[in-house]
């Protein structure tokens, strides 16, 4: 069985919740455990948040009621985030792509606690969480062109609730 979906959305923080819930719904027919769902949602949230605040440097901001959106202010479209998921049997592939500023030094960016935005109170744990909660993580980035984060997770291998403790 193979199933595929792609979402393209504005790089605004309002869409962080939307993105992770969409991926959780995409795999729901596999009857994942709460833990698996939680792992996937966290990893997607980290990758999408990174694209929004680092890739596009938080340029497009929040959508607050009554405030003009970036497009209304500037006349140009805000940056987009691409979320591509493929399910092959029980293997879930997630790709999160942006056309933002890219990462100069991917290795350093992936070090736990390293952040370029301490003023935003970022913990520097984003990539560490993606690595911990997924089975495989690959980051491809070119400065000035954007970043692609690819993650893999095998579904249906999680413990039953309470099985671990």
């Amino acid at each position: 069985m193979k199933n595929e979906m792609e979402l393209i959305f504005d790089a605004v923080s309002d869409n962080e919740g939307f993105a992770r819930v969409a991926v959780a719904a995409f795999v729901s027919h596999l009857n994942p455990t709460l833990e698996e769902i939680s792992d996937i949602k966290t990893a997607v949230s980290e990758a999408v948040t990174n694209a929004i605040i680092h890739g596009y440097e938080n340029l497009y901001g929040y959508i607050r009621p009554g405030e003009m959106t970036y497009k209304e202010r500037s006349g140009t479209n805000s940056g987009k985030v691409w979320l591509h998921c493929t399910l092959e049997e029980d293997m879930l592939h997630i790709e999160v792509r942006d056309k933002g500023k890219g990462i100069d030094n991917v290795e350093r960016a992936m070090e736990p606690l390293f952040t370029t935005k301490p003023e935003l109170e970022r913990s520097g744990m984003g990539f560490a969480f993606m690595e911990a909660f997924m089975d495989d993580l690959e980051v491809e980035s070119r400065p000035g062109e954007g970043t692609i984060v690819r993650m893999k997770k095998k579904m249906g291998v999680g413990d039953w609730i309470g099985g671990e403790e």
Binding site: E46, L120, E121, R122, S123, G124, M125, G126, F129
Partner: peptide, 13 residues
């Protein structure tokens, strides 16, 4: 029911 690394940032700060 859900927290990502942003929550870690809040607590650390």
């Amino acid at each position: 029911r859900f927290m990502d690394s942003s929550g870690i940032g809040i607590i650390m700060g």
